[in-house]
């Protein structure tokens, strides 16, 4: 039949190749992955348990409310929401889970930004880099996020570290894209003025381009943080602690109530983080 035309070649062992590659990377970079797994894992545990959880919840809630109050321009809305929302999470006994989730989101976002901003700058400066990296970003964002869990486990075992790894892959693209966009959007006049006064490349970048692109970059960072948060449940599938794990286990036990409560806690966290990062972006004058 017609389909035989398509059978001109045997099945391409694509999956085997990826397996092979993952194996090679796992073995070849073990010297790198193992210490990361160990030290970074320890650090995360330390950060969650000995830093965040050491802060009395009352202080933590008030501190967040204060931050919310000031970044929103001394308005009470978000501050009040933070107090009520975080208290509710505490009341439901999810404080420890919340702290673990915050740790995961915070570190994943931080790493995404540290990686993403320089790559975005590189893309804005080099056509070649732009042409190469753009499809990679598309790939990173369209590949179902679950898929990242597999190499993450291969590289880092289970726990928080592979969760961060998968989150970083999933959450970095917006920061890269928006940084690139922001710098490219800086008015040609200003770039020309900067050149005309004899700026070096880095002076131009730090004194003109980055300040001008700041709000665009911040919009990208906001997206990155939200994407990292959206990975919380997925990351829990490979053993990351936190609210996601509650959601997952209630799913397995068909426990609608517990699942809903953990879900609400994630939503509360998402709203607080989103509004705070968005308001950081607001022009002060």
């Amino acid at each position: 039949m017609l389909n035989t035309i398509l059978d001109f070649a045997p099945k391409i062992p694509l999956a085997e190749w990826v397996d092979w590659l993952t194996g090679v990377i796992t073995d070849g970079f073990a010297f790198l992955f193992d210490p990361i797994k160990e030290h970074f894992g320890n650090f995360m545990e330390f950060f969650a348990e000995d830093v965040l959880m050491a802060i009395p919840p009352v202080i933590f809630i008030l501190a967040i409310a204060l931050i919310a109050f000031f970044v929103t321009g001394k308005k009470f809305g978000l501050a009040a929401f933070s107090i009520v929302g975080l208290w509710l999470v505490y009341n439901q006994g999810h404080w420890e889970n919340l702290m673990n989730t915050v740790t995961l989101v915070l570190l994943a976002s931080l790493i995404s930004i540290i990686i993403g901003v320089p790559i975005g700058i590189l893309m804005s400066k080099s056509k070649t880099a732009n042409a190469i990296i753009t499809p990679i970003l598309d790939f990173m964002q369209t590949m179902p996020a679950f898929v990242y869990l597999i190499p993450a486990v291969a590289f880092f075992g289970i726990g928080m570290v592979p969760g961060v790894f998968a989150s970083v892959i999933f959450a970095t693209p917006p920061t890269v894209r928006f940084t690139n966009l922001g710098i490219r959007q800086v008015s040609k006049d200003l770039v020309e003025a900067s050149d005309a006064f004899g700026t070096t490349g880095s002076q131009k970048l730090f004194k003109v381009e980055l300040p001008m692109a700041k709000s665009t970059i911040m919009a990208g960072i906001n997206q990155t943080v939200m994407l990292a948060l959206s990975m919380v449940v997925i990351a829990s599938m490979i053993g990351a602690k936190g609210l996601g794990r509650e959601v997952l286990s209630s799913l397995q036990r068909a426990d609608a109530g517990t699942g809903f409560v953990a879900g609400i806690a994630i939503v509360i966290l998402a709203i607080i983080i989103d509004r705070i990062t968005q308001n950081l972006n607001r022009d002060k004058d």
Binding site: S187, D189, L190, E192, A193, D195, A196, F197, G198, T199, T200, V208, P211, M212
Partner: peptide
């Protein structure tokens, strides 16, 4: 760059001030 810094300064049609 030295010449641009020391000898030539430019004024632009659309001002090109840094906002």
């Amino acid at each position: 760059r030295e010449v641009r810094r020391k000898k030539l300064s430019m004024v632009f049609q659309q001002f090109a001030l840094f906002p």
